[in-house]
Design a protein around this nucleic acid. Structure first.
Lengths: 291, 291
DNA sequence: GACATTCGTTCTTTTTAAGTGAACGATTTA
DNA sequence: TAAATCGTTCACTTAAAAAGAACGAATGTC
């Protein structure tokens, strides 16, 4: 049975990360001597010096580096224990969701529906750019990021990406603009288009489709916000290139109609960190989304 | 900064694994009340009960299970820290090698050469059957297992297998037995053979070769020990089917000569566990072996 | 080079946490 | 039903953590 003193190890860990004993002591509201003597005791217990005293500075020895690696493991697990129990203990359990600013609100609502309105669940929704959202996910400030552009996949990626939905993309416009059943080529030749901006998968696929039929349409707008695309279509600016969920309500009310369905798909993803103890609410939502 | 008390957590961890507070106290040479009051303090710090008191027994709550999982992580990292530093601190650093009993000693020496004779390195060599060696590897009593038969590969295998050498197999005999340049079919028809036992890759491949030339040789011996094959060849019992490294010295001294080289290969492997902090000596050896 | 400042270490004393043993209540066992 | 067992609480004792002063060595400034 180990009799490592974890209290001493934590002081070592704090000093090792800071590199200066006096400053660490101030930060922890301790005297220098408390730190100094307890790190010394740890060194005696381990049978090796962890710091090389060069001048007034402390430099990690090889043994110190080994100890620091293990201490990182130990104290991050300790932090995660506190965080997890803090959440478990809350009367209202929290689910923190980040969504790309440009992502359909209807889609977000549909995804969150299983937990919305429950008295024991607090949903915290944040929107932002991909970079902002992934930073927050990394900092454990978000449980999940909803996006239509998954992060790059490589061997060292800390992310888990789950596909939630696959929406066929269509052309939509006001009833006066959309008459009868017209071929795609004619539609894009006749009507100005309201397109997503270039850095989206829909846009890329759409441009490919245009190239294939050698079309050179008038582009009325390029917008990075689905809600704005919807509003522009509603005021008659042109035909919108979006998944139907974006304009669901307007379709129901007959304010917008479908001009054509395209052989294009927008995919929706949930991106999470591979956490040892994932938020149970999230597990629940992801399970519901794939049914 | 976390202010979790790891000393309290360790007591909780010990009781949780044992399931009985009194027995745990005895084992740790403490009073019951020391355990009871410190676990109570931990519960207060965490804001949740970790044990449900049913009758006189303690049962883990959900929070208790979460805490136990994290504690397992924490204290196994703590143990590994102690183990690692204990090894690092030894004046003679240890490398524990297991080798299949039947494996060429010359090969073993060649592999270990970079660390043999160094004053700061102690090499511990064990031989045994595959099953014995893998059990010792699993129990962390060995750093590496040298073998000519790698373990089965599957997704949950804890082993890392590295190929070290690829030796072409030949026929070897005493000079009086080996005259001129004879075809393989003639050699095996004329001379009794000294073969590895059936459960080896060499033997399997050799039997296939025999079948291909429709040969029915006289088998003088089937041996599971390379050193014994060498001795039998030396005393003129027949032609030995082995990689040259097995009879390296005898070839140099002219006590044995090569009758033929075969289109057969014996592979040598190093098998290790995927450890977070591998023995540096081993890392060094494996790097040298592939150069 | 002289002097001032800064950093970490050591020592003694004070404060806080860990541990003991007795008493007790609740549960289990025979 | 009585005895045994288990965990909890309390008052007290022991051990560990922490403070503050003194000090030596290194670093920085003029």
């Amino acid at each position: 049975m180990s009799d490592l003193n974890y209290h001493h190890l934590r002081y070592f860990w704090a000093v090792a990360h800071d590199g200066n004993l006096t400053r660490t002591a101030e930060r922890l509201n301790l005297s220098q001597s408390a730190l100094s003597s307890q790190i010394k005791q740890l060194e005696e217990r381990l049978g090796q010096t962890l710091f090389e005293r060069r001048g007034r500075a402390l430099h990690l020895t090889e043994a110190g580096r080994i100890a620091l690696d293990h201490a990182d493991t130990i104290f991050s697990a300790g932090k995660e224990l506190l965080d997890t129990l803090r959440e478990t203990a809350r009367p209202a359990r929290a689910l923190r969701v980040g969504a790309l600013s440009t992502l359909s609100r209807n889609f977000q609502i549909t995804f969150l529906e299983p937990v919305l309105g429950r008295p024991d669940v607090e949903v915290i929704l944040r929107s932002g750019s991909a970079a902002e959202l992934y930073a927050a996910l990394d900092a454990l400030n978000l449980d999940v990021v909803l996006t239509n552009t998954p992060p790059a996949r490589d061997a060292i990626s800390p992310y888990l990406t789950q596909k939630l939905a696959d929406q066929t993309v269509g052309l939509f416009g006001t009833p006066d603009r959309v008459r009868g059943n017209r071929p795609f080529e004619d539609l894009v030749a006749e009507h100005p288009l309201i397109l997503p901006t270039r850095d989206t998968q829909i846009r890329n696929a759409f441009d490919t489709l245009l190239a294939r039929v050698r079309a050179k349409p008038t582009i009325a707008a390029e917008v990075d916000d689905m809600a704005m695309i919807r509003l522009l279509a509603l005021r008659g600016t042109g035909l919108a290139v979006v998944p139907p969920i974006v304009v669901k309500d307007e379709l129901t009310r007959g304010e917008l109609v479908q001009a054509a369905m395209l052989d294009l798909h927008e995919l929706f993803y949930a991106v999470t960190l591979d956490r040892r103890y994932p938020n149970p609410l999230l597990t629940e939502l992801l399970a519901a989304a794939v049914r």
